[in-house]
Amino acid sequence: MADAVPPVAMTGDDALLDYLLRLGDSDVVLAQRLGEWVGHGPVLEEDIALTNVGLDLLGQGRMWLTYAGEVEARSCGRGRSEDQLAFLRDGGAYRNLQLVELPNGDFAATMVRQFYFDHMHLSLLRALTGSADARVAEIAAKAVKEVAYHVERSDDWVIRLGDGTSESHMRMQQAVDRLWPYTGEMFAVDAIESALIETGIAADASALREPWLAAIDAVLAEATLTPPTGEWMQGAHGRGGKQGIHTEHLGHLLAELQFLQRAYPGAQW
């Protein structure tokens, strides 16, 4: 795929642009996945709640992508808008985690994916509130309150369904195990992130892994679910979603997300 795997020697604004896309794309892609639940939630209340989370993420994604466009403009004189970034980039140029592009599956899989992501998301945003880049710190501070609620909701569902009926327990354990290999990428740091960690702009994702594990294990224990032990991680060694290497699912998601702007360029309502 074109645009996949950025040059490793990226620094300064080029690296920041890539990092902002990583932050924004995961939000946008997960928001799109959650949006697929509209009208299909198990009950009306949950339908609204789940898509509220999606809308929170979409709002955060917009802030990251808008800033990404500004950084692009100051680095090469021609910056794209949030819409151009979201609707006119191919899969290989997307920098989201593979975890968030995976299909919704059943409600258990959707909630476990959210649970894994939310816990990382919250500690990442908390760390970013201390970023040396004022804009990054600002956006993180705004997002952190919303995400604190996401974590509460996800924990709640994991415990309810894990410690629920035998059917719900079985489905949750399956989801916990199946999605596990996609969690390693969240804490993998490549050359681009290293460069930004050095200048105090990015958060050191690798330092978030231990607290994340502890939080996940505590909730899984309460949910009577068995924590996965698999060591093998998908895309965790510099060739994952953050470098533009995606699963086959992202293309289908983008086809739906981008259809209108691709078929009718510049269309508005």
């Binding site: 009950v43 009306l44 209340e45 949950e46 609204i48 709640a49 509220n52 509460e152 909701r153 709640d156 309810r160």
Partner: peptide, 20 residues
Amino acid sequence: SLHASDAEMAVKNARDVYTR
């Protein structure tokens, strides 16, 4: 009104349905 399995979930659902 709304549906929820217990009081705690009812408060969360109320937050999402009625205080957006």
